[in-house]
């Protein structure tokens, strides 16, 4: 069962930008693309821990600000020659509100 939690209004996230959600498992970056789609990814590059939320968002990709690894926002997979991935989280956009699936967060922290 998914459990979606209302975290913010869409307008609170800049287009081609991201905002952070603090969780018990670390920070999650919630991205908004130029065409108003939202994605949620772990805010920690597998390479050197760079904050992906501070990267430049282009199309449905983000480039890590520290060493320019590029991640697909859909899958969390590193693109090109780099190998690695970040966790992705389900998000919903309903009536201008952004909802984040917190199922995994709750289960992990309960365990």
């Amino acid at each position: 069962m998914s459990r979606f939690i209302d975290i913010a209004a869409l307008e609170d996230i800049p287009r081609q930008g991201a905002r952070l959600v603090k969780t018990a498992l670390g920070c999650i970056a919630v991205f908004r693309t130029a065409d108003d789609r939202v994605f949620a990814l772990e805010d920690r590059c597998p390479h050197k821990g760079g904050p992906l939320s501070e990267g430049i968002v282009h199309g449905t990709s983000v480039t890590c600000p520290l060493h320019a690894w590029v991640f697909d926002l859909n899958t969390g997979q590193a693109q090109g020659a780099d190998e690695g991935a970040v966790q992705t989280f389900a998000v919903q956009l309903t009536a201008g509100r952004v909802l984040l699936d917190a199922t995994r967060l709750a289960r992990r922290s309960a365990a």
């Binding site: 939690i5 975290i7 905002r19 603090k22 969780t23 018990a24 984040l100 967060l105």
Partner: peptide, 12 residues
């Protein structure tokens, strides 16, 4: 600052 803090809710 972070837009939301779920550390408390998730621990409920």
């Amino acid at each position: 600052a972070p837009i939301a803090d779920l550390t408390l809710r998730a621990a409920e």
